[in-house]
Design a protein around this nucleic acid. Sequence first.
DNA 1: CGTGGCCTTGATAAAGTTCAAGAGCCGTGG
DNA 2: CCACGGCTCTTGAACTTTATCAAGGCCACG
Lengths: 228, 228
Amino acid sequence: MDIIDHIAAIPLFQGLLKEYHEDLTTIVVDQIFRRGQIIFSDGDEGNGFYVVISGRVKIFKVSPEGKEQILHFFGPGELFGEVPVFAGEHFPAHAESIEESRIFFFPRDAFIDIIRENPSLSLSMLAVLSRRLRTFTMLIEDISLKEVPGRLSAYLIYLSEHKDGTDDLILDISKGQLASLLGTIPETLSRILSRMAREKLICLDGPRCIQILDRNGLLELASGERRL
Amino acid sequence: MDIIDHIAAIPLFQGLLKEYHEDLTTIVVDQIFRRGQIIFSDGDEGNGFYVVISGRVKIFKVSPEGKEQILHFFGPGELFGEVPVFAGEHFPAHAESIEESRIFFFPRDAFIDIIRENPSLSLSMLAVLSRRLRTFTMLIEDISLKEVPGRLSAYLIYLSEHKDGTDDLILDISKGQLASLLGTIPETLSRILSRMAREKLICLDGPRCIQILDRNGLLELASGERRL
DNA sequence: CGTGGCCTTGATAAAGTTCAAGAGCCGTGG
DNA sequence: CCACGGCTCTTGAACTTTATCAAGGCCACG
């Protein structure tokens, strides 16, 4: 598969004329990152953005004591690191490849030139950023307004709805990473999972398998009507 | 002062041809909100965005138990409620006028038409959204990775730097609102303020006046090197 | 078969919230 | 002019949630 095909397959660039796809081909930097490799760090200067072609990337913050808060996971077709492109200054968080990943890097200036000529591209980009703001709003709500069982319930419901809608869930990240995404630590997550299992809300079916037994109960936890 | 002058004064519309300012005049809805009035609610359908002309607006989330988390305060020249314009769906939070405010509302479709013809406007909008993402990233970091004294210190330092840089601060919001912005409750904020005063980090000079006595100490708290 | 990563469990401690009561401030109206 | 009610803010004590520290279990991989 050619580079131009990968570019044409990126949702952000759908609806862009082939001519511009070709332009992008000439400026793109094609990179491979290994598992655990840092792509950029909080505070680094950014002069372009990234798109995941294959693999997975996590975006996160770290406290001085070493605790980390994951902001996003991004997979194929998704872009990240775009804030400095439009707002200037530095990356506001770290990016790490959590498995072997192929990443395309698009330098800022050439990209801005293309956006100037393509209103539909800029609208797509505005949509991407707006959706991201929505995600952050929900994350802030979760972290600040719910306790851990509520956040976990909301995540499980989300997983179920964004997969096949069934009750059998397969975590695509480790429990340690899930803890970080939920703004807590592995010990706490582990305790709450077993408490939920004891209350027959879920059933733990192995390392990364969770079965939802009482969806309503989870919804009540997520909305704060009920405590564990 | 005419409506077109107000529109021309909005930073987002700087650099836009006068012709477009005139177009905007024909679609804008000029509104006054009283103190405490709700502008829109979390989940409402959004078909346009707002710009503060005068007064102040707070954007916030509310938990089922009634605790609120403030996401932003916006003042003259700033826009809000733009997420549904580009991402579709509903407002992700509530907006309330915290004093008598004059607000311009711009309906979505007409605005999108203008953006299509004005690359520089879309770049301005991208910059606005990117800055907002940066702000949210910092808010998440604060809430999730720092404890309340750290968040408060960071806020005080921020206030001092974004005003005149002096050590005498005047809060432009009530302590209750500040607590909500910091993701805590008034009682906790009050306790921590008096603890900081006891430790000679600050001096409480009346209802809304705080004097910074030990800026370094505050910086250490904000960065987590030190605990209260 | 041992080693390292990831996960679980327990005891303990810290931070923050809740509940309750009271202080200070201010505008209104008797 | 002073008393009243309604605010916001403060303080105290009990309680809840979560983090920390420490130990042990499970499993895959060499």
